[in-house]
Write a protein that binds this DNA or RNA. Structure first.
Lengths: 228, 228
DNA sequence: CATATTTTGCAATGTCCGTTGTACTTTACC
DNA sequence: GGTAAAGTACAACGGACATTGCAAAATATG
């Protein structure tokens, strides 16, 4: 569709030429473009311009062409975001030292807010993820599996451990399936925000996002609080 | 990406030529192809073959070409699924006659199962929806708004009325925001299934899907049951 | 400064694909 | 059966785009 033509030739950084970190510049720009336009619509020329790099340089760094570049972007971006998510998780919920019961909601909310914040901080990544979802049938299964493993599943696994620990200390009741509690937690804190923000196209005002996040956390605690 | 080459020339229905329902055949095939391949990757030739129709006929029916066809598919598919979803909703939850409290879980679960079942019955549609999500930035805002209005929002609105009615009768407690309860309900019953089934690419066995749906409904009732 | 490596600009190639015009065939309808 | 509408086959145009080769220029390294 024509829609909003999102290309903007003026934005390209001035051509700081001849560095060795061209590779990361390329991957970074490719993450933007792939996330914005998807695999088919994304053009190598666009990526090159956005990275301040010659088209030829891309093929020097990624002999496999567009496909290899896309796979590299998947790996790079998902690892970057995973690390950030894990950092926030460890910041607010330490499995070793479970919070005081009165602070549980506060800590869960802090984590939820932090994670929701990452959705706007790493907008390109999550746009890319949506394209991965949509094009799952066109991505080789092993690539998809590897991505799931090092990305979403790693974070889910960590949070699952935390949930299990909280359950052990009687702070919540996972009803026998901590992994399920994790999925429900993530679904409750993020679904409405992604929908209402048109999946990141037009972000919500901070206070509204906070309100929805808090509502999700409260619903989660009603479903999984140790009182229930 | 190369991945699985999903084209299959042998599948095209035998060319029952010269009907007036060519238009619907085209839209139906286009729904499949757009859902499988996305807007950019989808080819007019592929759609024509899959519909058992000449390429030229597509342009006779849709002078606006690919774009108009895509918009028609969006409207057609979303209305079809919306009607089906509304039918299931009215089948299991009548706002006029709220269920007996003991039957609430049973009815909610029946609705949830029915809706989850639609996700496989209308696999093409939901694949298309994922592409719409991913390409939201490339679809004109008014088209996107119209789609939301006649599709997802219509269903959400109906379910919101039902939730409000259930709240009025003391069967659940929506905590002041029935619309939010609706989003949480949908998130809880569908998130894990869509994720685990690789977004419809490799469907889950029936019993597993049932288990996850039931877990979602139970979590919802713990969060929004009138007892809580 | 000299040499090896990296980057670049540019042209060219090949392919895919949306779209259109045209002449011919099939179907619907009276 | 004959006429009008709808469908088809086919060829062709034009543009977008991934990819490559090559020679010149810039950069790093010693």
């Amino acid at each position: 569709m024509t829609g909003t033509d999102s290309r903007d030739k003026t934005r390209a950084a001035q051509p700081r030429r001849g560095r060795a970190d061209k590779a990361t510049a390329i991957v970074q720009a490719a993450c933007q473009v792939f996330g914005r336009d998807g695999y088919s619509r994304a053009g190598i020329d666009t990526i090159a311009t956005e990275a301040g790099v010659s088209t030829r340089t891309i093929y020097n760094h990624f002999p496999g062409g567009k496909e290899e570049l896309f796979r590299s972007v998947m790996r790079w971006s998902s690892e970057r975001v995973r690390d950030e998510q894990l950092a926030q998780l460890r910041r607010y919920l330490d499995p070793e030292r479970p919070p005081h019961p009165a602070d549980l909601e506060r800590d869960l909310l802090a984590l939820a807010r932090a994670w929701v914040g990452l959705m706007t901080d790493f907008r390109d990544h999550f746009a890319l993820v949506r394209h991965i979802y949509a094009e799952a049938g066109h991505i080789p299964t092993d690539v998809l599996d590897a991505w799931q493993e090092t990305g979403p599943r790693a974070v889910g696994g960590e949070l699952t451990s935390v949930m299990a620990a909280l359950d052990d200390h009687g702070l919540i009741d996972v009803h026998g399936d901590p992994a399920q509690a994790v999925v429900h937690f993530m679904a409750l804190i993020s679904t409405e925000i992604t929908q209402r923000s048109y999946w990141g196209v037009s972000p919500l005002p901070q206070e509204e996002a906070d309100r929805l996040t808090a509502a999700g956390v409260r619903a989660f605690l009603r479903a999984y609080g140790s009182a229930g």
